[in-house]
Lab assay of single mutants.
Amino acid sequence: MRDETLEPLPKNWEMAYTDTGMIYFIDHNTKTTTWLDPRLCKK
């Protein structure tokens, strides 16, 4: 489920979907991926 109230992704981040429809996030700065939304992981 998407939460439209979240702010935009940080610079150089992208949201993508797996072949089965699961959301993951791509950090183009470090060339890594994560299941965790970077907008929710702020310190």
Rank of each mutant, 00 (worst) to 15 (best):
M1Y: 10
M1D: 13
M1S: 12
R2S: 08
R2A: 11
R2M: 14
R2N: 13
R2Q: 11
R2G: 12
R2I: 09
D3A: 10
D3M: 08
D3P: 11
D3I: 07
D3N: 09
D3K: 12
D3S: 12
E4G: 10
E4C: 12
E4H: 08
E4L: 10
E4M: 10
T5L: 13
T5Y: 08
T5E: 12
T5Q: 14
T5F: 04
T5K: 15
L6S: 15
L6D: 11
L6W: 10
L6M: 11
L6G: 14
L6R: 13
L6E: 13
E7P: 14
E7W: 06
E7K: 10
E7A: 11
E7N: 07
P8W: 05
P8Q: 09
P8R: 10
L9E: 03
L9G: 01
L9P: 03
L9W: 03
L9M: 10
L9D: 01
P10E: 04
P10C: 03
P10W: 01
P10R: 01
P10M: 02
P10Q: 03
K11W: 08
K11H: 11
K11Q: 13
K11V: 10
K11G: 10
K11T: 11
K11F: 07
N12T: 04
N12S: 07
N12W: 04
W13S: 01
W13N: 01
W13A: 02
W13K: 02
W13V: 06
W13M: 04
W13L: 02
W13Q: 01
E14L: 04
E14Y: 04
E14I: 04
M15E: 12
M15S: 12
M15W: 06
M15A: 13
M15V: 10
M15Y: 08
M15G: 05
M15T: 13
M15H: 08
A16K: 12
A16T: 06
A16W: 02
A16Q: 09
A16S: 07
Y17P: 04
Y17W: 13
Y17F: 12
Y17L: 13
Y17E: 15
Y17T: 15
Y17S: 13
T18G: 06
T18N: 04
T18R: 01
T18K: 03
T18V: 02
T18L: 03
T18C: 07
T18A: 08
D19M: 03
D19E: 14
D19G: 10
D19Y: 08
D19K: 13
T20R: 12
T20M: 08
T20A: 13
T20S: 13
G21K: 08
G21A: 05
G21W: 01
G21S: 03
G21Q: 07
M22R: 12
M22Y: 14
M22T: 14
M22S: 15
M22V: 13
I23W: 06
I23D: 05
I23E: 15
I23C: 14
I23Q: 15
I23P: 14
I23G: 11
Y24E: 03
Y24A: 01
Y24D: 03
Y24C: 02
F25Q: 02
F25H: 04
F25T: 02
F25I: 03
I26A: 04
I26F: 03
I26V: 11
I26C: 05
I26E: 03
I26Y: 03
I26L: 10
I26Q: 03
D27S: 02
D27K: 00
D27Q: 01
D27F: 01
D27G: 00
D27H: 04
H28Q: 06
H28T: 07
H28L: 04
H28A: 05
H28G: 06
N29V: 10
N29E: 13
N29K: 10
N29T: 12
N29F: 08
N29P: 03
T30S: 12
T30A: 09
T30V: 04
T30I: 04
K31V: 04
K31A: 10
K31I: 02
K31N: 08
K31R: 14
K31F: 08
T32W: 03
T32A: 07
T33K: 04
T33Q: 04
T33L: 03
T33Y: 04
T33W: 04
T34I: 00
T34E: 02
W35Q: 07
W35F: 15
W35N: 05
W35R: 06
W35S: 07
W35C: 07
W35L: 09
W35G: 05
W35I: 06
L36D: 08
L36M: 14
L36W: 12
L36I: 11
D37Q: 03
D37S: 08
D37Y: 01
D37L: 00
D37K: 04
D37A: 04
D37I: 00
D37T: 06
D37F: 00
P38N: 00
P38G: 00
P38K: 00
P38W: 00
P38H: 01
P38C: 00
P38Y: 00
P38T: 00
P38S: 00
P38A: 00
P38D: 00
R39G: 05
R39C: 05
R39F: 02
R39A: 07
R39T: 07
R39P: 03
R39V: 06
L40A: 13
L40Y: 07
L40R: 13
L40E: 15
L40G: 13
L40W: 08
C41Q: 15
C41E: 15
C41D: 14
C41F: 12
C41G: 14
C41S: 15
C41I: 15
C41V: 15
C41L: 14
C41T: 14
K42W: 09
K42Q: 12
K42H: 11
K42Y: 07
K42G: 14
K42I: 10
K42M: 10
K43N: 12
K43E: 15
K43C: 12
